[in-house]
Amino acid sequence: MQKLTYISNLAVNKTSGGGFGVNAATFASLQSEFDVKYIGPVSPVVREVEQYFSKVQKLLRLPRNYYFYSDSRLSQVRDELQLKLATSLKAPLFFHGITPWIKYKPEVAYFVHTDACFASYVDVFNNGEIFRKKDIARIIHLERSWLDSATAVFFRSTWAMNETVRLYELAGKNFHVTGVGGFADFPEHDSYCGGYNFVFISKEFIPKGGQVAVDAFLKVQQVYPEATLTIIGDEPSAAIKERPGVVCTGMLWKEKQVDKKSFQHILTGAFAHIHPTTKDTNTLVIAETSYYGCPSIAPLAFGMADQIVDGETGFLLQTPIEIEDLKNKMLWMIEHEEIYLKMRKQARAYARLHQTWEGVGKKISSIIQHTL
């Protein structure tokens, strides 16, 4: 069996979702095809002086360095990685993520799995913050060269791949789109039994569009008082929690069996998943809700176009998402029952074909085997 060294800044035994979940799922899928050795977590602490200086600059609204990827910290990552790889066989390398590793120059074939490049992250998640242009350019220069030299780079969405090609002015001949999966069991049947229980799932209520979701729901509730909204994850304000028909579960951690069962129970009875996010790359919850036949409404932005077939498995809305537009799609689902029920079947079928970690793993493994 071909040997492969898997390198990550995260532990591979955490499966709660997000970056941890993707990391664990990728590692597990590679193990089915390769003899994989894990090295990690490689994540040296940030120097306090760099962090403090950056925070002072932020308070003073001065351009600041991106301290998490300072030259000294990237050098620490490189040195730690070199030390850990010194006793390893010269097997091909597989990196979880991009930016932490850009000062390490592999002498063997290497593969990269990511949801977006650094420039996209800064644009999406640090929008409005002021960084020193020279410091951002330093990181982008290193990352551009490192990606261009990789044997293959696996992106989780077409959007992320195209943005990297555009922002880094790369040909992208070694770039591939592999998609994402979810961290929920894929039930044998859709057990939805009726009702209008909308769900909103996020670790960040406001950036993921929580207020827009609530405002749209309240307008729907004026027409259909029996409608409910379950908010999973980051909790909203007390005023929202006290609204009739709104249920907040708090965070549900899937590595805890009781939380996992609660999460899956909610999805079993969910009518639709609303995700009017403004800060994202791709999201695992669209895959997870689709497993249960629950269609999603999300923006025509980021990686969502790979996850939703507009009008067939859910809806994609123009950005920025307006409350009225979201409300209208929610009402449409309620008022077009026959088409809606067909949408549930199509959401499950599309997810089974395109949004499982088994499928993602097979794509990645096939490309690795073909290139070695």
Rank of each mutant, 00 (worst) to 15 (best):
5 T>A: 14
8 S>G: 10
9 N>F: 15
15 T>M: 10
19 G>C: 04
21 G>W: 00
30 L>A: 02
32 S>R: 14
32 S>C: 11
32 S>P: 07
33 E>C: 10
37 K>L: 13
38 Y>W: 15
42 V>W: 14
45 V>T: 13
47 R>C: 15
49 V>S: 14
52 Y>T: 11
57 Q>Y: 06
64 R>M: 07
65 N>P: 03
67 Y>S: 05
70 S>Y: 08
73 R>D: 01
78 R>V: 06
79 D>T: 09
83 L>R: 14
90 K>E: 11
94 F>Y: 15
108 V>E: 11
109 A>M: 13
113 H>E: 12
114 T>Y: 03
120 S>V: 10
135 D>T: 04
141 H>S: 12
142 L>W: 13
145 S>G: 09
146 W>D: 09
147 L>A: 03
152 A>E: 03
157 S>A: 11
159 W>V: 03
162 N>V: 09
170 L>F: 09
171 A>Y: 14
177 V>M: 03
179 G>P: 05
181 G>E: 03
183 F>I: 04
185 D>T: 14
185 D>V: 12
186 F>D: 06
187 P>W: 00
192 Y>K: 01
195 G>Q: 09
208 K>G: 06
211 Q>V: 03
212 V>S: 08
215 D>P: 05
219 K>Q: 12
222 Q>S: 13
224 Y>F: 13
224 Y>G: 02
224 Y>V: 02
227 A>D: 06
231 I>F: 13
235 E>I: 10
235 E>Y: 15
237 S>K: 13
240 I>K: 05
240 I>Y: 04
241 K>E: 12
242 E>Q: 14
243 R>D: 11
254 K>D: 03
257 Q>A: 15
262 S>N: 15
262 S>W: 13
269 G>L: 06
270 A>M: 04
272 A>M: 14
279 K>P: 04
281 T>M: 04
281 T>N: 12
284 L>W: 04
287 A>P: 02
287 A>Q: 03
292 Y>E: 00
297 I>F: 09
299 P>Y: 11
300 L>H: 09
300 L>F: 09
303 G>Y: 02
315 F>P: 06
316 L>F: 11
333 M>K: 06
334 I>F: 01
335 E>W: 07
340 Y>S: 00
345 K>C: 08
349 A>R: 11
349 A>W: 03
356 T>K: 04
360 V>G: 05
364 I>P: 06
366 S>Y: 09
368 I>H: 01
371 T>E: 15
